[in-house]
Amino acid sequence: MTITNKFVNYEYDHTIGMDDFAGRAFRNLSDLAVADDGVLFVLQRGESVHNNPSVKICTVDEDWIGEFGDYGQEPGQLMWPCGIAISNEKEIYVTDEWNQKVLVFDMEGSFVFQWGIKGSAEGEFDSPSGIAFEGSGNLLVVDARNSRIQRFTIKGEYIDSFGSHGTGAGEFNMPWGIAVNHSGEIYVSDWRNDRIQKFTSNGEYILEWGEHGSNEGQFNRPAGLCVDEDGLVYVADWHNDRVQIFDSEGSYLVELTGDATMSKWGAQLLDANPLMEGFRQTAKYPEREGKLYRPRSVQVDKTGHIFIVDSCKGRLQIYQKI
């Protein structure tokens, strides 16, 4: 499947994952980080109250590596993990919206350190969600319920912040995702205002686009977002069940709505359970199986892969920019 307009072309590549909570499977997906070596760190939330949230690790070829993460409020434990990113120093940073923390793990999943308490003062959080590293190595954290973006060193030392609550330029209503382009400019998905805002690296407002709706360029609660090597912006348009792609100024280019084909893990499950495959073959409108359902995040890697976190389907859909 090739998705194209006159400026860009995307080809569906493959799908990773199957739906289940434990082990080699995904459920309640929140975010994804792609390491330089192509290893994927997939962030999974617990159920309403319990079950372990975890970071699941696999390759882009769907080889399972393992997972880490414990539920709780002790150092190194997670309750409501939301955002994940990997630093230049090869450490994994995870935000936790309930524990009000940023936690740091090494690439093997060992806990390194954490910071953050609930509050609205400098360095404090009220529902930290999306995170992204700047080229300088500093970390930007979306402080959702404080309606601001906070900047920290990789050691968790507060640097500065921008944003306040509202609907005007530079104001936010429960922002979620954040991304930085090669020039250091910052994009924020202003979730409850149904728009994307663009800022200079200093947090000065540049422009915005979007409004509530389901047409091109409109949003129904934009969640995670990312920027590719060419400066194109990818937005997980959560409750419109799609990813929209824009140029760096917010002009709409194209959308991805999902084309999932059978994953390796899914095929292995069905091969081992012919009855399941039989049931699947009886499905009415089988083409719907491939559509995105509540995508919460989208990430790109340096080779032009676009990874869509298809949250409520328990899978990642991968496209290739061509």
Binding site: M18, D19, A260, M262, S263, W265, G266, L269, L270, N273, M276, E277, F279, R280, Q281, T282, A283, K284, Y285, R288, E289, C312, K313, G314, R315
Partner: peptide, 18 residues
């Protein structure tokens, strides 16, 4: 109904009256 048991590997297909 349609889609009674179709549910793997990514969760149930939406069941519909038929």
């Amino acid at each position: 109904i349609a889609n009674f048991n179709a549910r793997y590997p990514w969760g149930p297909f939406p069941m519909e009256f038929e």
